[in-house]
Amino acid sequence: MPAPQNFKNYTRRDPLFHFILAPLLLLNFAFSIYITVHNWPSYQHTHLWQIVMSVVFLLIAERARSYALKNQDRIIRLEERLRLQALLPAADRSHIDELTVPQLIALRFASDAELPDLARRALTKNMDPKAIKEAIVNWRPDHQRL
């Protein structure tokens, strides 16, 4: 079972992406440049094409990761709006749409008991995500986020 989450340890790394895929793609790019420089001018078009394709692979990996994170952000936004709708007093529900997406994403870590007060403070004080996370007393873990 993972250690309890808090402000100091909530970030996660995807081992397959961060420690295998990204380094291998960077090595591929560096190796493509190395091969091109050391074998110039023979097969120059092929070697240059290999560099271009190495860049394309890096861009594909970055885009795929950013799309997945953007999708997670949209799901978290929806989940937190529904959660706030259920937990906030009727007078405060009309202000849910005033919270920014980064604020909603930060509020997902707040326990149900402290969420209404923290959401109100986030709106009135225009708190940034880091300040929201630091203000959380009872951390609600999110082990699904990448």
Rank of each mutant, 00 (worst) to 15 (best):
T124C: 06
Q72I: 05
H143S: 08
R93W: 00
Q85C: 00
R93S: 00
E79F: 05
R65M: 14
A61R: 09
K130M: 15
R65V: 08
V137M: 12
A30E: 01
I33N: 03
L24D: 04
W40V: 09
L26Q: 07
R13Y: 15
K8A: 10
H47W: 11
A64Y: 15
D117W: 15
D112W: 00
N138F: 08
R12G: 05
S42F: 03
E79I: 12
P116N: 05
Q103P: 05
M127S: 03
L99Q: 09
L107D: 03
A3Q: 13
H38Q: 14
P4L: 09
F57M: 13
R65K: 15
L82M: 12
R93F: 00
A135K: 02
D117T: 09
L27R: 02
P116M: 04
R12C: 07
R108E: 06
N9M: 07
P116L: 05
M127W: 06
R108P: 06
F31Q: 08
I132R: 08
F17V: 15
L69M: 15
H38F: 09
Q72F: 01
R65C: 01
R140W: 07
V37C: 01
I76N: 07
V137D: 11
L115Q: 04
L58S: 02
A90M: 01
L59G: 13
H47K: 08
L99K: 12
I33P: 05
L82P: 01
V101Y: 00
P15S: 12
E134F: 09
I75S: 11
I96N: 04
S54E: 07
F57R: 02
H47F: 14
R74T: 08
A110L: 03
A64G: 04
L115D: 10
D128G: 11
A131M: 09
I96G: 05
M1L: 12
A122V: 10
L104C: 14
D142N: 15
R140A: 04
S32K: 11
V56Y: 07
A86Q: 07
V56C: 03
L21K: 09
N126I: 08
H47R: 15
H143P: 03
D117Y: 01
Q72N: 14
L87W: 00
K133V: 00
T46Y: 10
D142Q: 04
K125E: 11
A68S: 10
L48G: 08
D128F: 04
D73M: 05
D128V: 09
N138R: 03
P2N: 10
M127G: 06
A110H: 10
L82V: 10
E80G: 06
I76T: 15
L24Y: 01
L16Y: 15
Y34C: 05
Y43C: 02
P89L: 00
A3N: 08
R12A: 14
L26D: 15
E114H: 06
Q50M: 14
R12H: 12
L107W: 02
A30N: 05
P41K: 12
M1T: 07
H38Y: 15
V137H: 11
D73G: 11
R13D: 10
Q50K: 02
Y67F: 10
A86M: 01
P102T: 14
L48K: 01
H47D: 02
